[in-house]
Simulated assay, not measured.
Amino acid sequence: MAQRLPSAAVLVLHGGRETGAVPPPPGPLNLPGVRMLPFVRAVRRAAGAPDGDVLVRRVRYAHRGWNGGRADPLHDAVTALDALREEAGDVPVVLLGHSMGARAALRAAGHPLVRGVVGLAPWCPPGDPVTQLAGRDVVLLHGNRDRTTSPQATQSLTARARRAGARTCMVTVRGGDHAMIRRAPAWHRLTAGLVAGLLGTRSLPGPVDEALRLPPTAEATLGTLDLDRLGARPHGGPAPAGRR
Rank of each mutant, 00 (worst) to 15 (best):
L157Q: 12
G223Y: 07
W187Y: 06
R85K: 12
P122S: 09
P151T: 05
T154M: 06
V208E: 05
T149W: 08
R58C: 11
S99G: 08
D137K: 08
A102C: 08
P207G: 05
R60A: 08
L157Y: 07
A104N: 03
P73N: 12
L230R: 00
G52P: 02
R233C: 10
R160L: 14
H178S: 09
N30M: 03
V94S: 03
Q152A: 12
C169F: 12
R243D: 12
A166T: 07
T191S: 15
D72G: 11
H188V: 14
T172A: 10
A159G: 09
A46T: 01
P92W: 13
W66D: 11
A49P: 01
G101D: 01
E87G: 11
P234N: 02
V94Q: 07
G200S: 12
P23W: 03
G65K: 07
G101A: 02
G27H: 09
H14R: 07
V59R: 00
P50E: 00
G197L: 08
N30Y: 02
E219G: 10
L214A: 15
A105P: 02
P151N: 14
R183E: 06
W123F: 14
L227I: 10
A102T: 04
T217R: 14
R147Q: 12
V56K: 04
R58E: 13
C124P: 05
R45H: 03
V118R: 09
L106G: 03
D177H: 04
R162C: 05
V34I: 00
T131N: 14
A9E: 02
V78Q: 11
N67E: 13
L113E: 04
P122E: 08
Q132E: 07
P25S: 06
C124D: 09
V139A: 15
W66N: 02
R163V: 02
G15T: 00
N30W: 00
D137F: 12
D177E: 06
V78F: 04
P28I: 10
L225H: 08
L5N: 15
P240H: 11
D82W: 15
L13F: 03
R70W: 11
S7E: 14
A2W: 10
G16Y: 00
A164T: 08
T217I: 15
H142L: 06
P24R: 03
A239M: 01
G15S: 02
N144S: 13
T154N: 07
T131H: 15
L133A: 05
P207F: 08
A179P: 00
A108L: 05
S156H: 10
V10S: 03
A109H: 09
P234R: 02
A46W: 02
L190Y: 03
A42I: 05
A21P: 06
G116Q: 09
A102G: 11
R136H: 10
P23S: 07
G223D: 12
C169G: 05
D82Q: 04
L140W: 00
D51I: 01
V114L: 08
R145D: 14
R44L: 00
S150N: 05
G65Q: 12
A88Q: 15
G16T: 01
L199Y: 04
A9F: 09
T154W: 04
G116N: 08
D226M: 15
R103P: 10
G242N: 07
R213L: 09
G97R: 05
L96F: 02
P129V: 02
L198Q: 13
